[in-house]
Amino acid sequence: MPQITVDYSGPLADGFDRPAFARDLHTAVVDIAAAKPPACKTRFRPVEDVVVGSDTDVHALVHVHIALLAGRSDETKARLTEAVLELLRQYVKPAGGLVLHASAEVRDLDPSYRKFEGE
């Protein structure tokens, strides 16, 4: 916990500083949602096909999904979502006239969530 997934349009790859984004995102999750730094895990998934409206060539998407153990207030989740959007403004620089659509969601992990660490 937290489990963070970032889906992004493939054409953004060169203009998205993913390591710096993840580093600062983890700091925000620790500061805002009281997560432990070693527990922050982010995976990035490039998305090949994106369609917004009827224009397929001018739009790019980034969606950040953060799943936390239950117990955070709606206010805390909203603050974290706003912090994510601000970080996306900093670290995603679309090239070639792409219009960026950025979004974020923070939700509770299902009570069935379990994990282990080890070899």
Rank of each mutant, 00 (worst) to 15 (best):
Y113H: 01
T76G: 13
P38F: 03
L12D: 08
T56I: 02
S103D: 14
P94T: 00
V106P: 07
D108N: 04
G71N: 02
R43Y: 01
H59I: 01
G118I: 13
A28W: 05
A34R: 10
C40K: 10
A70N: 15
T5I: 08
L80S: 10
L87C: 05
R79D: 06
T42L: 09
V99A: 03
A13S: 13
D57Y: 03
L88P: 14
M1P: 15
Q3G: 09
R107E: 14
Q90F: 00
A104I: 12
R114L: 11
T81L: 14
D110M: 06
A102N: 06
A60S: 07
V51N: 07
F16M: 10
V58W: 04
V99S: 01
H65G: 15
R23N: 12
E86W: 05
A13G: 01
F21T: 09
H26L: 04
F116P: 03
H101N: 13
Y8A: 06
A102F: 01
V52E: 13
V29R: 03
L25A: 12
H26W: 00
Q3I: 11
A95N: 12
T76D: 15
G118C: 12
P11H: 04
P94V: 05
R18T: 13
I32G: 11
A13T: 03
D108S: 00
D49Q: 09
A20L: 12
K77W: 06
R89Y: 08
L88E: 05
D108F: 01
A35V: 08
V6H: 02
F16C: 10
Y91F: 00
P38H: 10
A28R: 14
P37T: 00
L88Q: 06
A67V: 04
L85P: 05
T76N: 11
A78E: 15
I4F: 09
A60I: 00
E119R: 12
V92H: 09
D74L: 13
V106F: 04
D24N: 15
A83S: 06
R79C: 05
A28V: 10
A33H: 02
L12K: 08
R18Y: 07
D74F: 07
T56E: 10
V29P: 02
A34K: 11
D108M: 03
L85Y: 00
E119M: 12
E86L: 08
P38I: 04
L12Q: 05
L100H: 08
T5S: 07
E82A: 15
V64K: 01
Y113S: 05
P111S: 01
K115D: 01
R18C: 07
R18D: 07
